[in-house]
Nucleic acid binder design. Structure first.
Lengths: 220, 220
DNA sequence: TTGTCGGCCGATCGCCGACAA
DNA sequence: TTGTCGGCGATCGGCCGACAA
C-alpha cells in the first residue's frame, strides 16, 4: 500500500515508530492483549530496534495495520543506520487531501444514499459543473486493495446538498459497514481518488460532535 | 455425522474400506493428487491397516468426506481385531429412505421453486392431506451440520405436480447451489428428515438421463 | 410426469424533496 | 449545513398455471 494512503486511512492519531528507531517491547501488554483473563505475569520491558515495517490492510475488513519486526538490542550496542533509513514522512511533492466521516444511520441503513459534508465535496471531490441541472458526476475511487468503485455524486435538494447515490449502497453492503463506522476519502493527485474504512470501536455509543484533524464526527 | 446419513449423502457408488481392514497406500497417487505437475516419482504401494475412520462434512460446502488413518503393516504381522470392530453396515433396525436429484436450470435459477419428482414426494416426504385444496405442508429438514431448513411443499398446477416453493430459494443461495449440483433428501424415521448436497463434477456438461440406485438424473 | 416459460403481484430498493435540528 | 423522514417509481423475487417434451 502507498504509505500516504495507509497513513490517511489510519488517521492522524496513529503514530508508528521510525524504521531502526529504538523502542521498548512490553511483554506484559502482549500477554494481556492475548489472554486478558490470565493471572498477572510480570515481565520487564525489553529494549529493541525496529528492523522492518510493513504497512498492510486486512483483506476482509479493509482495516489498515502495521507489521513491525523488533530485534532485542542493549542500549550500548552499536547499530548500523543505513542511509535513507528514516521512514519518509515529509516529502511535500504530492500531498494527499483527506476527509473522514463517521457514518450516520441514514448513511448506513436507509435509501442507499450518503450525505457528503460540504468540505469533502469542495476539497476532496473533483469540482462539479454547477451550470448543469442538477450538477452530477461519476466518481471512480480505488480502495486499499486496488479495487475500483464508482459512485454517482449529485448536488440537489432544497436546500442544496452533496450526495452519493447510485453505487453507495453496493459499497456499504460489500464492506459490511454499519452506523458508527467511518469512511475516508482521499485525493492524491488530480483525479486520483482513494477510499478507506475504519470500523467503529466496539459498542461505542457516541454522542456529541467534534473535530480531530481532518476528522469529522457528526451529532450535536 | 450419523453414518447412515453420511452414506446417503455420499451416494451408493462411494465405498470405503472397513475399519481394521488391510489396504494398500499408493504414494504415487498421493503425489499426483497434490502436485500433478511434478515429474514422475515412482514409489511402491505400502501395505497398511485402517486404524481409524472419521465420517465428516466440509463446513463450507456441505460435501461429505472420510478421514482414514493408515498404519503400515507387513502381511505377516499379527493384528488384534477388537470385537465388534467391523464398520456396522447392516443393522436393519432403521432404514434411511433416500432420494437424490440433479438440479435443473429451473430448480437452481428461476422463480425460487424446486420440482419434486413423484417418487421423492411419495416415498421420502411425509404424506400430504389430499383432501385439502391445494394439498400443502411445511417440511423441516436438517442438514449435515444440524441446521434446520423449512420448506413449503405444495401439490398444485395442471397437471398436478409436487413443488417446493417458499424456503427453497434461501437454501439454494445459502448453499450456493447451481444447475448440475445435486440435493439428497433422506427420511430416517417417521418425520426425521435430512438434506445433503453434492457438487457437480467440474465442467461436466451432461446430457442424457439415467438411474443409478436411488439416483435420478433428468434430461431425456 | 416434469422442465421451462410468461404473467403477475407484492416486497424491497433506492432516488427524491420536505423539513427541522 | 446536513440528518431523517415519507412518498413513490422501478426493479426484483417468487408463486402461479399453461404448455410441451
Amino acid at each position: 500500500i502507498d504509505p500516504k494512503i495507509w497513513r490517511a486511512c489510519a488517521g492522524a492519531s496513529v503514530k508508528i515508530p521510525a524504521l531502526f528507531s529504538r523502542v521498548y517491547y512490553y511483554p506484559q501488554g502482549h500477554v494481556e492483549h492475548c489472554c486478558p483473563s490470565s493471572s498477572a505475569v510480570t515481565a520487564s520491558p525489553i529494549a529493541c530496534v525496529v528492523s522492518s515495517i510493513d504497512l498492510l490492510a486486512d483483506p476482509i475488513t479493509d482495516e489498515v495495520f502495521a507489521h513491525l519486526t523488533l530485534h532485542p538490542a542493549a542500549a550500548q550496542d552499536q547499530f548500523q543506520f543505513p542511509p535513507q533509513s528514516r521512514f519518509e514522512e515529509e516529502d511535500e511533492s504530492e500531498k494527499v487531501v483527506t476527509f473522514a466521516k463517521v457514518l450516520t444511520a441514514s448513511d448506513a441503513n436507509n435509501g442507499g444514499g450518503f450525505s457528503v459534508p460540504r468540505y469533502c465535496a469542495d476539497s476532496v471531490f473533483p469540482p462539479l459543473d454547477f451550470q448543469a441541472d442538477p450538477p452530477v458526476q461519476k466518481l471512480f475511487i480505488t480502495d486499499v486493495h486496488g479495487g475500483v468503485w464508482d459512485f454517482r455524486h449529485i448536488y440537489r435538494g432544497t436546500p442544496r446538498r452533496h450526495l452519493l447515490t447510485t453505487g453507495w449502497s453496493k459499497f456499504v453492503n460489500s464492506k459490511k459497514l454499519i452506523c458508527g463506522d467511518s469512511v475516508v476519502f482521499m485525493r492524491k493527485s488530480v483525479h486520483e481518488m482513494f477510499i478507506g474504512v475504519r470500523r467503529a470501536p466496539i459498542s461505542n455509543k457516541s454522542g456529541g460532535s467534534s473535530y480531530y484533524g481532518d476528522e469529522y464526527f457528526p451529532g450535536g
